[in-house]
Design a protein around this nucleic acid. Structure first.
Lengths: 245, 245
DNA sequence: CGGAGGCTTGAGCCCTTTCAATGTCTGTGG
DNA sequence: CCACAGACATTGAAAGGGCTCAAGCCTCCG
């Protein structure tokens, strides 16, 4: 994997735990396979028997669960630097699909290879555990939203969360960013209908909370949006925990 | 912690990873504080500055998120052997509450103490990571349910999941078990209303899928219930992953 | 015996969905 | 440069699943 593309991962791992230079080197040495992907392309094609994890280098991705009736629930959104399919280490999940929302690239690594690294480098294992924990926290936050917030609150919450995560990844300014998903995907992420997402989006606009131009969002009244979403960004970060290195 | 009470934990950890006898001993030696709790009692009272984790020894518990408007979303149910508040290791969560659903007991341990054990015993860390991963998988399953299943599907799914988890913990027979929660709690777990939960429960009964006596559930037609819930138990288990010991 | 928490049931409303059609944008090929 | 296709966005009307409100009931327990 090129030093260039690993930077994002490095940044996100370092943000979530103490990792030594040796850890970093060990990570870089791994046999990654870089893949460029188009928008809509599945990320975790399991053409061989091995399971894989990947690191999102550029672009945005989502992970969704397919229900038997054909509907879909998007359960997570991913920004560059995120691990994709970490759960594949423990469990195969045949009803999940991870796809790119935009063109981008990933670095793929076979799960067994990653596993053997982890057994030698507990601090990396710790960092990945932490990422799983943050993911779980986001899940439960979404769960609360879909279960107990109305449509406006859900959309508002998703906008808040995405804005914060983009800023953390250094990909967005203060209150203006590109929302790289269609309204249908927004609907699948919030448990709504594309039609209703459209209406809610426009009601947010008419209320003066946001501005919409194509897929660029400008948050015009952060305070009211946060209030409407009942948004508290605490769950997105986790403070580093000391681990013997 | 008594050898008796650690058995459940031991069982659940061993089920999720290779743990050596030394690991087991190291775990038992930890300074646990055993606490008996009444139904409805909060589990993670943070009366001191330290954060705590606990292990549920007996009884059932839930973890919920409180929304600002006073509503609540229960995000997880816990059976004996589960770790409670594992997320506390990484993040303080002031909008969460973990409470007992029934009388029971927990073994409490300060998070820093647990941390220091983990840094010495990677395989225990691995087992806890795995438990976090399973929890995340359950979250996302619930998310899909609340987002995309109708009320009947959600209730049916919860019943299926709980039955399977109880059996895995050795606490229930084939198709008959005690559901240790009120209909209001069921509602908070499924994103519904207590009133509607009541109606759905009775419609399941009238359809001949389940029988209800007080809070004892008998699943009378497992196949149709699974179909209605679109239930696939795969996400509840994770196969052990080899780790250097 | 009284109170509290939980369960049950009914009626009406509302948010969201469904269905269906139209509009807009972008890229492609003639 | 225009015609066309396809994906996405927008809008309206009507239906429905679940909610709200409200009352009554049961059961346990002090």
């Amino acid at each position: 994997m090129s030093d260039r593309s690993i930077e994002k991962l490095w940044h996100s791992l370092a943000a979530s735990g103490k990792i030594s230079a040796e850890d970093r080197d060990a990570l870089i040495e791994l046999p990654f396979a870089s893949r460029a992907l188009e928008a809509g392309a599945p990320v975790d094609r399991a053409e061989d028997d091995l399971r894989h994890c990947s690191i999102l280098i550029s672009g945005f991705a989502y992970c969704g669960k397919l229900l038997r009736d054909g509907s879909r629930q998007i359960v997570s959104l991913h920004v560059p630097g995120d691990f994709l399919g970490l759960g594949n280490i423990f469990q195969p999940a045949n009803d999940r699909e991870t796809r790119m929302m935009t063109p981008g690239s990933v670095a793929v690594i076979a799960a067994p290879t990653l596993k053997s690294l982890l057994s030698v480098r507990p601090s990396i294992q710790n960092a990945l555990w932490r990422q799983t924990a943050v993911e779980a926290a986001i899940f439960s936050e979404w769960l609360a939203g879909v279960g107990r917030r109305d449509a406006q609150g859900r959309i508002a919450h998703l906008l808040c969360e995405f804005a914060v995560r983009l800023r953390a990844a250094g990909l967005a300014g203060q209150d203006r960013f590109d929302l790289p998903m269609t309204q249908a995907q927004l609907a699948d992420a919030t448990g709504l209908t594309a039609v209703h997402v459209n209406r809610v989006l426009h009601s947010l606009k008419q209320s003066g909370l946001v501005a919409l131009e194509k897929r660029t969002i400008t948050i015009k009244d952060w305070e009211r949006l946060v209030a409407m979403a009942d948004f508290d960004p605490g769950y997105l970060q986790s403070e580093p925990m000391t681990v013997r290195t």
